[in-house]
Simulated scan of single mutants.
Amino acid sequence: MQASFTRRSALALTGGALMASTRSVQATPETRDAAIRDFAGEAAIRTGRVLVDVPALVENGNAASLTVTVESPMTEADHVRRIAVFNETNPQPNVVTVVLGPLSGRARLSTRIRLAGSQRITAVAEMSDGTFWLGGADVIVTLAACVES
């Protein structure tokens, strides 16, 4: 008896392979830490100067408000160059990176973020003197977003 390979069986195999390859994509605390290290390079990262404001309890992870504020006079001599936001359970550890300069006025980033579940949100700011500062906040999510079905 000869086995037949039909178009239907080819589509079934391809679909199964695609679903298997997309299922387990999720950031972890380790991938978040590696993404932070990629952002800062070998520079020391200090705690402070960065305030992450996210509600402690989010009912719906599809659109949680997030504000990152960095203590800086935002002058030519002392300003924030970049702010990056990282997470530990969304599909990717990098959320957003913004570039600022002394003409930005304020060292503040406000946005909405999708959250795959309860986790720690971390922000790192690169200053004009080459230093890096870190802050973070924990958030509990009751209805997660970014969930693969």
Rank of each mutant, 00 (worst) to 15 (best):
A20I: 09
Q2A: 15
S128L: 05
M127K: 03
A107E: 00
R106I: 13
T28R: 09
L103A: 11
A137P: 10
R7Q: 06
T131G: 11
G101Y: 14
W133L: 02
R37T: 08
G16S: 07
D138C: 09
A77G: 12
R114Q: 15
A40S: 04
T6Q: 02
A64W: 00
A107S: 14
R7E: 11
R23L: 11
I140G: 04
N62T: 05
E30M: 07
M74N: 01
A20D: 02
T97D: 01
S65H: 04
M127C: 03
G130V: 00
T22W: 15
P73E: 02
V68S: 00
I36T: 05
A34C: 01
R114M: 15
P102W: 15
L115M: 05
A56N: 11
Q2R: 12
G41L: 02
D38K: 03
T97Q: 08
A10M: 08
V70H: 01
S24V: 13
F5S: 01
A27W: 13
P102Y: 09
M74P: 06
G61V: 05
I83T: 06
R81D: 08
L57I: 10
F39M: 10
R114T: 10
A63R: 06
T131M: 05
A56E: 11
I45N: 10
G15Y: 00
N87S: 04
W133Y: 12
A3S: 13
F5P: 07
E71V: 15
Q26Y: 09
T47E: 15
L103H: 14
S21V: 07
M19H: 12
D33C: 03
S9F: 05
A12Y: 02
F5D: 12
E76M: 09
V95G: 03
M74D: 07
D129T: 04
S72I: 00
V147I: 15
R82V: 13
A77E: 10
T6R: 05
V70W: 10
T31I: 13
T89K: 05
V141K: 00
G16V: 01
R82C: 06
N90I: 08
L13Y: 12
G15M: 08
V54C: 01
N90C: 13
V54M: 00
V58Y: 10
S21C: 09
L134G: 04
G105R: 07
R23F: 14
E76K: 14
A35C: 07
M127R: 07
E59R: 15
A43G: 06
L11F: 15
A107K: 00
E88M: 14
L134D: 12
G16L: 03
Q92P: 00
A64H: 01
L51E: 12
A145Y: 03
R23E: 11
A107N: 00
D33S: 02
R32D: 02
D38E: 15
